[in-house]
Design a protein around this nucleic acid. Structure first.
Lengths: 150, 150
DNA sequence: TACGGGTAATTGAATCTTCAATAGAACTAC
DNA sequence: GTAGTTCTATTGAAGATTCAATTACCCGTA
């Protein structure tokens, strides 16, 4: 075990600010969706990814990748979405282990109804708060972090 | 209802990158703590805040503020931490509604043992991934976002 | 063909989080 | 002092997430 390189005061401040700001942002977004559309943000993300996929269909593993969630969590979530009638499962003909998740018309309608409020919340939390330069930097930093952990 | 100002392509990309990068970062940090120290990151944060407070003691509401979590969530979490013997509750003498959360010696020891691994994970996910300029920008952006939502 | 290792997705149990409701205490104004 | 309001914190139930285990399948190789 090598010696621990502790965070200095600046790094600590940055890490705390990072943690807290994202907790606040994500909570605000999540609360808006739960309140106005009755779904957590995780569900919204799934519906969005499906809505943009060809045939509104994705393999479970692709959907997990796109939304950065674990296979297990996605599987549970899709089960709930299926119960609500917003998504359905279909077998994959070429790989019998595989499953497709398909956005239903009802799911699409729910997503369309939820979108304006959600976009408003995202604008309010991020894009109205930052100037153009900060947005550019946030984008760059996010890409860098995501690349490293993928 | 005014017309929705949708996100343009750049904004969408930034928002997705933001979401995904933070999901990846927080999951990595959380997984490390669960694996190596048997506690979720939320517990670690609570222990840290208490460890830095005078007398290792904070009012529940102050602790909730410091960690940016809801009162309910904190109350449940402190109950679990109490069951583990890492935190104890004390009555507030000046306000009989109030409760203090106090870090126990055992809790302090657990925190001290968990810290090196956690710091390593934070370095790995954030500070080793970004250059000094990016860290400075991340700090500024995080402060801005947090200020707006508080 | 049969073996073995890897892949796709699901399951159940334990844990964590959210929400709404509640209890009890403190403040405010009369 | 007391009625009404707000503040502090907790509770229980419903829902979401994690982890480990499992099922079923694919594919390369002998």
């Amino acid at each position: 075990m090598t010696e621990t390189r502790w965070l200095n005061a600046d790094e600590q401040r940055t890490w705390r600010a990072y943690l807290n700001s994202h907790r606040l942002v994500l909570d605000a977004i999540d609360a808006q969706l739960r309140r106005d559309s009755g779904m957590p943000q995780a569900y919204y993300e799934i519906l969005v990814q499906l809505s943009e996929a060809p045939e509104r269909t994705l393999r479970m593993a692709e959907l997990a990748d796109a939304t950065c969630v674990s296979a297990s969590r996605l599987s549970h979530a899709v089960t709930r979405l299926q119960e609500r009638g917003w998504v359905r499962r279909e077998d994959c003909p070429t790989d019998r282990r595989g499953q497709f998740a398909v956005l239903t018309d009802e799911g699409y309608a729910v997503l369309a109804a939820a979108a304006p409020g959600h976009v408003g919340a995202v604008r309010g939390a991020i894009f109205d708060a930052l100037d153009a330069e900060q947005v550019r930097r946030l984008d760059e930093i996010s890409q860098t972090l995501a690349r490293r952990l993928t």
